[in-house]
Structures are given as C-alpha cells and as structure tokens.
Amino acid sequence: MTHIYNSKTPFERAALDHVSLKISSGSFTSLIGHTGSGKSTLVQHINGLLRPSSGSISVGDFVIEPQKKKQDLKPLRARVGYVFQYPEHQLFEETAIKDVCFGPMNFGVSAAEATKRAEECLTLVGLPSLFWHRSPFDLSGGQMRRVAIAGVLAVHPEVIILDEPTAGLDPHGQKEIMELFHKLNKNSKLTIIMVTHNMGDAALYSDQILVMEAGQLKMSGAPEEIFSREQDLRNMGLDVPETMVFLDKLTDKLGLEKGRPVFTLSETADRVADLLNGGAAHV
C-alpha cells in the first residue's frame, strides 16, 4: 500500500493551508480547482520538489518532514514520476529514445536495460519505431508529448503525477492520452494523481476526486459524490461534466427530479430514455 499523508502544510504565502489527505496505491485520483488554488503546489510536495513548511508527507515508507533538511530525494523520485504541464518542453537529447533513457539512467539503470525500457515505453505510448531515432524536435507536438510521457514511465514509477496531461492537444490526442493512463492504472496498477481542469476526464477516470480552493482541500470523494454537490462546485466557480449539464437542462425543461450524476454518454442516453418513458407514464 502506498499512503500519501500530507498534513498541516502552510507553505509560503500559504499556498497550502493545513491539507491532509490519503491516496491508496493503485487508485486514480483527480485534483480539481481554479488556477491558483494550490493543486500544482500540493502535488509537487509528493515527490519532494517542494518542501512543506510544517506537516509531513509519506510515500510508502519514505517520509518528508520540514526538519530533515539534507535528504536524498532520489529514492522517492524513482518511485513517484511527474509529468509536467506541456512535458514536451523538457526534451533535450539528440534522439527520442535517448531522451527516454535519461530518466532511468539517472536512477542507476544500465544503458542496455534503459534502452530496453525505452523501447517498451515508446511502444506503450504509441510512437511508431521509425520516429525513435529521430530528433525529438522534428516530431509533431502530440508525438513530442508521447516521448516525454515515455521518459517518465521508463523510470518504472509506482505513482505518477500528471499536471494537465492533455492541455493543448486536439480532442483526438486528448482522448488517446487519457485512455493510455486509464489502461496503465487498470492493468499495471499504476497509482495516478492527476491535476485537471477537464471535469469530464476527472469524472470518467477517477476513483477519487479532490477539490481545492485557496490552498485548502474543500471536498474529497468518489466522482458521483463530488458531482452530486453541484451547487457547491458552482459556488467555487467550477463546472460539472457536460453530460450532467445536459441532463440538468432536460430535467428542468421536463419538470422532473434530477437523478444521480452520470458521466458516460451511453448512461446519459439510458437516462434520457428513462426520463421520456417514466415521464410518459405519469401523463
């Protein structure tokens, strides 16, 4: 079990204010909230990029505390991968495959093993092998993003942090990237922590959603639980998934009760069919 426990963390300018939470291993957690609500600050504590001013963070048996100043963070970072927003900006090597090897080799993996991992990961992210030995800067934006993601996966982390992994991609690319992480979470039991503005993605893929506002953790729970508190979310200036927006409009128009939130299209269609039939029965 991987537990991440993070308590009492008033960071400078109080970017985070007494946040406590737990994330279980193998889960998919989404963090939602306004720009500047402290989502990115929070996740940067998880792999030690930022230090708490007070409180502590534990990842498995690794503990970060503000008192322990000189601490080797490498073992932690090998376990917790981090895909930054626009990760293609971190590419620097001559070839895509070399860039993917950079991470594993920093953590002491041999060159041969790193290359093997790189090939596996590039296949996994769906980059055709004819691009492997090209300069990453000759690839398209979407392909560069895949290389960068492979570079984080090749370290073989147990936990991976995603900071808006689909930002700036076209809808098709967005869907492919999300499907990839969904698969990694389900099949390889990779723990995923995702910062996102996309409520649809948060609702569809997460086991748990955390809602941040002004450095505080305001809500946490399963997607259904979070999105049934629609009014609270709206008060924070946050949206609900499109499917719910549509059903709200429909139930309003038909003068029927809102049901529990649904997120997939086919569930939504089922609900609409029910509403029509159920509604008809009353007439």
């Binding site: 549509f246 409009k249 429909l250 128009k253 038909l254 609409v272 029509l276 509604g279 008809a280």
Partner: peptide, 9 residues
C-alpha cells in the same frame, strides 16, 4: 435537443 425531447414527450 432538449426542446426536441420535450416536444417528443
């Protein structure tokens, strides 16, 4: 779509 469904119902 909402309007069409409403008419349909």
């Amino acid at each position: 779509l909402v309007n069409e469904l409403w008419t349909l119902r």
